[in-house]
């Protein structure tokens, strides 16, 4: 009774083999991440300092810090958010709470999916044509941020819509059956219960936008400028473009400088992601159903 048979032995071997295979693939997956981070910290770490963050590049961009680029990225991302978040959330609310499933909403959904699939360089060209030339904003923070906003809009819409749909339908039925209008239902029940997910999506979008290079390089971000941006019609430097520039376009840059820039960029993204995760955990801990 209950003794191991030859069949059991064989099955267990196969089982062990597959387990090993899947584990190896998982490790392969995180390996590049570890290597990249390790390289960056090893090579770029020594460059980092408070001075590096808060001074401008000097000596033809071969020395000094990244402050104008850092500030520029904050401007670009900030203005892009001001545009994309309200529009995206409003559109998501319409699609999830008001629209019924018909050919019109299906076309809109298709458009959102397609918009998300457009390569960023195509967005860049659109940005040049529409915002820089047609609307006459010139190469400016406004043109670049609008381009970024359009590019990230699908992300905001999709993540917001998912958070809204995660609110149980029973809550809506409860409200409607008591005579609440759609808006009363959204305002008092749906939004309070999805705000954590919506904000998480927004923060993730920030981290994505931070790293974008193509959409801003023709529309508002410049190689080098001695001036800090004063408003949305100024041009600006940006971290992502700055990294590209010091890594490939400027002769005589010390080896570790680009790594320092990359570390700052990745640091910003990681910071945003950590905030988003912490925030989500905090809000999730409070809600219950």
């Amino acid at each position: 009774m209950f003794r191991e048979t030859a069949l059991n032995v064989r099955d267990k071997k196969v089982q062990g083999l597959f387990r090993l295979l899947f584990l190896t693939m998982t490790l392969l997956l995180i390996l590049p991440v570890l290597v990249i981070l390790g390289m960056l910290i090893y090579k770029g770490g020594p460059v980092l300092s408070i001075d590096f963050l808060f001074t401008a590049p000097t000596d033809g961009m071969t020395a000094g810090g990244v402050f104008p680029a850092l500030l520029g990225t904050v401007w670009l991302v900030g203005v892009a958010l001001l545009v994309s978040v309200p529009i995206g959330i409003a559109a998501a609310i319409y699609l999830s709470e008001y629209a019924s499933d018909n050919w019109f909403t299906r076309i809109i959904n298709l458009a959102i999916i397609n918009l998300a699939g457009v390569p960023s360089i195509v967005h860049a060209l659109f940005g040049v044509g529409a915002f820089v030339v047609f609307f006459g904003f010139g190469t400016s923070i406004l043109a670049a941020s609008l381009t970024l906003a359009i590019m990230t809009l699908p992300v905001v819409i999709v993540s917001t819509r998912e958070s809204l749909m995660a609110v149980p339908q029973a809550f809506r039925e409860a409200c409607w059956s008591m005579g609440a209008t759609r808006w009363q239902t959204i305002r008092r029940v749906v939004l309070p219960n999805s705000v954590s997910g919506i904000l998480t999506g927004v923060i993730l979008e920030v981290s994505r936008t931070t790293g974008e290079t193509a959409p801003i390089m023709f529309t508002g971000a410049v190689f080098f400028t001695p001036f800090l941006p004063q408003g949305v019609f100024d041009q600006t430097m940006a971290l992502s473009l700055h990294l590209f520039v010091v890594a490939t376009q400027v002769p005589g840059v010390p080896d570790e400088l680009p790594y320092g820039v990359a570390l700052v960029l990745i640091g910003m993204v990681l910071l945003m992601n950590s905030i988003s995760i912490a925030f989500r955990m905090y809000l999730r801990g409070r809600k219950k159903w």
Binding site: A170, F171, A174, C175, S177, V189
Partner: peptide, 9 residues
């Protein structure tokens, strides 16, 4: 309703 659906307030 069939399943109690109090609001999460």
């Amino acid at each position: 309703f069939q399943r109690p659906n109090p609001l999460p307030i």
